[in-house]
């Protein structure tokens, strides 16, 4: 019995040693960008990186899923088609609820945004296969989230001026403000409008970054405690349970943040569609 335990612990120790040497990089290492295909456009670096790869994977998965789900287009939907229809209804309700029927012209944009962010978040939670894939969460980089946020706000601004002309500027003048306060209020409203893309970007990026760092740190505790062995090793069950719990929480956060990004985009689009109706 003891010899078996010894053998087990020595092999475990060897495995752990290898894990410690190779896998246990810092919690920030997962966010590093690696160039796969170096490319440059003038002075701009447009290399195909691991971030680009996971963006392509997210887009490809979304396209694959919806192509195969809508292929049969049956009156009585199968499993895949049901999921696709539920997703459609979910986003369509969100758009109609926030903007109204007129907002449905933005449905393709909001739907794409929601599905892309959801898939990117969820793909970041899939485990890496050692030596084959290295999972990367594209939405944990502010460059990506700020790009998406700027896309949303650009559409709001362009459509707002296209539809309302200069009347869109009424957005900065809330009704029922005494005239002597107006300059200050307009300034505050202007800063508040400018902060929208930043807050969209920061929220998604910070959620993803924080969640992945916490996961990595907790998982690192398991390895370190098991590496210490003996009674201390038994304590490793607690960070293990913690990691399981945080993984479940992260699944929820992944969905919630995609939802929040999409619904806030709808709310901002509503300002452009119905100026002064709030």
């Amino acid at each position: 019995m003891t010899t078996a335990l010894n053998i087990l612990s020595s092999t475990m120790g060897g495995l752990l040693e290898r894990l410690l040497r190779h896998q246990l990089a810092g919690p920030m290492e997962q966010f590093e960008i690696h160039r796969y295909v170096p490319l440059s456009l003038g002075a701009i670096d447009v290399s195909f990186t691991n971030s680009s790869l996971w963006m392509v994977v997210a887009t490809g998965l979304a396209a694959l899923f919806f192509f195969s789900a809508t292929r049969s287009r049956a009156l009585i939907p199968g499993r895949l088609q049901s999921v696709a229809e539920l997703t459609y209804d979910f986003v369509a309700d969100m758009v109609r609820g926030a903007i109204g029927q007129e907002g449905m012209k933005f449905f393709p944009f909001v739907f794409t945004l929601f599905i892309y962010i959801l898939l990117a978040n969820l793909l970041g939670l899939t485990p890496s296969i050692p030596g084959l894939t290295h999972t990367f969460t594209t939405t944990s980089h502010i460059a990506v989230t700020f790009g998406l946020a700027m896309l949303s706000i650009s559409i709001v601004i362009v459509y707002g001026f296209y539809k309302n002309g200069l009347g869109f500027l009424k957005l900065f003048v809330p009704s029922g403000v005494p005239p002597w306060l107006l300059p200050l209020i307009v300034l505050i409203e202007f800063v508040s409008f400018l902060s929208r893309p930043l807050s969209l970007a920061i929220r998604l990026f910070a959620n993803m970054l924080a969640g992945h760092i916490i996961l990595k740190v907790f998982a690192g505790f398991i390895i370190s405690l098991l590496g210490a062995g003996g009674v201390v090793g038994a304590i490793a069950i607690f960070p293990f349970l913690g990691t399981v719990a945080i993984t479940m929480l992260e699944l929820l956060v992944a969905f919630l943040q995609a939802y929040v990004f999409a619904i806030l985009t709808c709310i901002y689009l509503n300002d452009a569609v119905n100026v002064g109706h709030h």
Binding site: V191, S195, L198, R203, A206, V260
Partner: peptide
């Protein structure tokens, strides 16, 4: 959401 709204506006 509240934290990021406040922070973003202060940053801007």
């Amino acid at each position: 959401r509240l934290a990021s709204e406040l922070m973003a506006a202060v940053l801007v």
